[in-house]
Simulated assay, not measured.
Amino acid sequence: MSSTILHTNAGPSQESTPLNSLTSLRDVADGTERNPFLTALGERVRALRSRRGLTRKAVALASDVSERHLANLESGVGNASILILLQVSLALQCTLAELLGDITTASPEWLLIRELLENRDEATLRRVRAAIGEMLGTGGDNAQCSSRVALVGLRGAGKSTLGQMLAEDLDFPFVELSREIEKLAGCGVAEIQSLYGMNAYRRYERRALEETIQIYPEAVIATPGGLVSEPATFNLLLAHCTTVWLQASAEDHMKRVVAQGDLRPIAASSEAMQDLKNILAGRAAFYSKAKFNLDTSAQDLPATFLELRQFVRQALGMQG
């Protein structure tokens, strides 16, 4: 493979685009200032090469990248393509994530822990995660059933309907986390996302959950469908709530959303259904971390509620 894919910056760029408040990747070293990301990347390449005890020439031969381009990369002025970085990582016998500065490669302890966990099955990883939570005092993974019952699942699964019924039956407060997010932000969910972006929405979501946990020792909580996509927030939920995944078929999700008055899915027709199926497939592995799972498409609403009521009351040690 030609090494011309990796090139050095030769002069100042015509425009500047910030990257996390750092110098733009298009900005070039002019002898006095270098791009911080490229500088740090070069330092990691050099450190990894030293750790492996390899000369630059040996890495060049193994990666099929010229010594000159490797020298530019290590000095922080080589702006490499992703394929070149992959070749270099293979030559250095490290992951691409380690080369790019993933936090789990930041110290020997991180690396040793990661090595212990590599290739472990999901059940083992789950036990390890719960044990770490207990050790750090952040709570385990539903280690003891909490009187906060959190319903997770995609929109249209029945979280609001079943959640209100369950809260009334248990005589617990019912908390719809989306409404709490809107109270904190002073505007609707759609406005938060359009005005401030998804990162801001996720911060409000985390804060709303933290406050709900602090305020309510007992509650039924209906969570937003995308909460599981933020690991820190989902960890918090798993540690402090008895979680139930309300699962439904893609067709039922769609019908229920439309029945709620949201006609947007109809406009996209088959594309909307495929998108919904893709989201379900992408989140299923996270939803399945819940302590309980209930298929709300399998039977009618009264029968579904009775099943939910039964295993929640049993989990909480309540009669009835």
Score class of each variant (00 low, 15 high):
residue 150 A to P: 12
residue 77 V to N: 10
residue 302 P to I: 13
residue 175 V to E: 01
residue 171 D to P: 01
residue 160 S to D: 09
residue 115 E to I: 00
residue 191 E to K: 14
residue 250 A to H: 06
residue 93 Q to R: 08
residue 237 L to P: 05
residue 232 A to V: 01
residue 154 L to D: 05
residue 13 S to V: 12
residue 30 D to N: 15
residue 100 L to M: 04
residue 231 P to E: 03
residue 288 S to G: 11
residue 209 L to D: 03
residue 73 L to C: 11
residue 136 L to E: 12
residue 288 S to K: 09
residue 297 S to C: 11
residue 245 W to N: 01
residue 3 S to I: 01
residue 164 Q to W: 10
residue 257 V to W: 11
residue 167 A to P: 09
residue 230 E to R: 10
residue 182 E to G: 04
residue 174 F to E: 13
residue 137 G to E: 01
residue 312 V to T: 07
residue 254 M to N: 08
residue 227 L to E: 03
residue 217 P to L: 04
residue 65 V to T: 09
residue 14 Q to P: 03
residue 128 V to E: 02
residue 292 F to S: 02
residue 181 I to V: 14
residue 264 R to D: 07
residue 126 R to W: 13
residue 133 G to C: 07
residue 6 L to Q: 10
residue 1 M to I: 05
residue 282 G to Y: 07
residue 258 V to M: 15
residue 57 K to Q: 08
residue 194 S to V: 12
residue 20 N to Y: 08
residue 275 D to W: 01
residue 229 S to C: 08
residue 85 L to W: 07
residue 4 T to Y: 03
residue 293 N to L: 15
residue 128 V to D: 02
residue 277 K to S: 05
residue 199 N to Y: 06
residue 261 G to F: 03
residue 199 N to E: 13
residue 117 L to G: 13
residue 78 G to R: 00
residue 119 N to V: 11
residue 275 D to G: 06
residue 8 T to L: 15
residue 43 E to I: 08
